[in-house]
Design a protein around this nucleic acid. Structure first.
Length: 488
RNA sequence: CGGGCGGUAGCUUAGCUCGGCAAAGCGCCUGGUUUGGGACCAGGAGACCGCGAGUUCAAAUCUCGCCCGCCCGACCA
């Protein structure tokens, strides 16, 4: 292990070591791997093509999932009249501190009659507008989604994880019964778990949030929480059940089968570009990032190796012979013909986290093979070119599951079971990770955890609700088993 | 938003204390030699020293304001 670290150190230039300073490491790799940058406007980021391509892969996967279950994409306005925003008291109270306002417009910068909020989330505008389209139980459910960006005036920002503008999808659905809306929120949470685990190879804890952590205006909030390599938790997606709270505030009603007016039951849910940050922090190492094959813009990088023009022609002809097979097989690959030395290219593509690399030199041509190197083990394995596309497809599948397994093992090794607040406080002084503990359900006890354990919060309530023992704070009988962590 | 630190070439920084021709490494361009784990030689381009004001014969350097970033805190679902 130590040896490996020293070896890696030799490979790396320009990025802070993860073990030296995780935060700097993160910023370094996000910028050096060309994922994103700050823009010069406070808290606003520019997402570069390599980072955006990962987000696009996520959007395609999720869009397919929701279309399959009958959801439709809409586009609602960016600006929300103040009067729309303020109807649901709890909701506006929760978001008021981070809303940006448009108060002037036009050539003369005239003051607007009514200030317009730049959407921090769209429950209020969707609610205000959707009622036009809902009259009867036959119009339900109304399953809407939109892909957009929102603005939240954050005081402290971090690339991908917390920026003043971020890109996401926000789903808003309206149902004729509580049961159906609750099922909808559960369904989406399952999709989010799949995006995190099956696509990003990040194992997650999922479950309800405590009341203190529940979305403003929601009856309950569901979450998926991943563990980053510094031991901090990251919320990777949330799905909210609103009951009739929003429908009542925005008068979203329908005539039921008995011709009685009834308020809708609604949900909302979102995942964002934060997920790109999640995969960086969950899989990266001192050499750079590691991109899960399923979302990798480049899955296989080919590095040709030759000495002279003759060698180049030979290698090029050889690669042309099977590169089309990769394309036909849908493998996202690229041949790096840049005029650099092989070692430089190895380091470059490792920094960018490309899962598989093929080294192809003249002696490989003679042997009818390539040298396969994966980003996790760095072992070199000769692979015959006959049947190479199939072989690489299998390797990508294996890589994806190895990456998940590695993250899962990390999660296991950083998950603990404790029973008292003293233990929890002591634990988080020394290390991080997830800690399971029994909790009585009292908000006062929850606040004491946060206060005394240095910002540790309840991340999830165990969905199995297998509570036993006494509350870690007050000692009363526990109602819930909860996961605790420091979080981003 | 409070406290602390910083901003000099694409990147990382030196120079600032004590005002006096703006430097280095990496990267970039050209040519040559190279090429199986971050090459070497030679030449070259690239900076209103974050922005604005002030002090001064003279400001990267001193003073003030603003902008941007980093760390800590509050906030953040």
């Amino acid at each position: 292990m130590k040896q490996e670290t020293e070896e890696q150190q030799d490979f790396v230039k320009d990025i802070t070591k993860m073990s030296d300073d995780f935060d700097r490491w993160y910023t370094d790799v996000v910028r050096k791997a060309e994922l994103a940058d700050w823009s010069g406007v406070r808290g606003m980021m520019v997402v570069r093509p390599y980072g955006w391509a990962m987000w696009e892969a996520i959007t395609r996967a999720f869009d397919d999932m929701i279309k399959e279950s009958g959801h439709e994409n809409w586009a609602f306005p960016l600006l929300i009249p103040q009067s729309f925003l303020t109807k649901e008291a709890e909701h506006i109270e929760g978001f008021a501190p981070e809303v940006a306002w448009v108060t002037r417009a036009g050539a003369s910068k005239e003051e607007l009659e009514e200030p317009l909020a730049v959407r921090p989330t769209s429950e209020t505008i969707v609610g205000s507008l959707i009622k036009r389209y809902i009259h009867s139980h036959r119009d339900l459910p109304k399953l809407t989604n939109q892909w957009n960006s929102v603005v939240r005036w954050e005081m402290r920002s971090r690339l991908f994880l917390r920026s003043r503008e971020f890109w996401w999808q926000e789903g808003h659905t309206f149902h004729a019964s509580a049961k159906e809306a609750i099922e909808e929120a559960d369904l989406i949470l399952g999709y989010y778990r799949s995006i995190a685990e099956d696509w990003l190879a990040v194992p997650v804890l999922s479950g309800r949030k405590s009341p203190a952590e529940t979305f403003p205006g929601a009856v309950h909030t569901l979450t998926v929480e991943g563990l980053m390599r510094d031991g901090l938790a990251l919320q990777m997606g949330t799905s909210h059940y609103f009951g009739q709270n929003f429908a009542r505030a925005y008068d979203i009603s329908f005539s039921n089968k008995d011709n009685e007016k009834e308020f809708c039951y609604s949900t909302s849910w979102g995942i964002s570009t934060r997920l790109v940050g999640a995969l960086v922090m969950a899989h990266g190492d001192d050499s750079g990032i590691v991109v899960p094959p399923k979302v990798a813009p480049i899955q296989v990088i080919v590095v040709p190796i030759f000495r002279d023009a003759e060698g180049r022609t030979k290698v090029e002809g050889f690669i042309d012979g099977w590169a089309r097979e990769l394309k036909a097989a849908g493998i996202r690959h690229r041949v790096d013909w840049r005029d650099e030395r092989p070692g430089d290219k190895y380091a470059h593509w490792e920094l960018k986290g490309v899962p598989l690399r093929l080294n192809v030199g003249t002696r490989d041509v003679d042997a009818g093979q390539v040298e396969l190197v994966d980003r996790l083990s760095r072992e070199r394995r000769p692979v015959p070119v006959a049947g190479i596309a199939e072989r690489l497809q299998k390797e990508l599948v294996t890589f994806q599951s190895r990456l998940f397994e590695r993250a899962h093992e990390f999660q296991r090794q950083n998950t603990f079971e404790l029973s008292t607040l003293d233990e929890v406080v002591a634990h988080f002084k020394e290390r991080a990770g997830f800690v399971w503990a029994p909790w009585c359900g009292d908000a006062e006890c929850e606040a004491r955890i946060k206060g005394e354990a240095g910002g540790v919060t309840i991340r999830t309530i165990d969905p199995d609700e297998k509570a036993s023992g006494q509350c870690l704070v007050c000692g009363k009988p526990a109602k819930h088993r909860v996961s605790l962590a420091k979080a981003y």
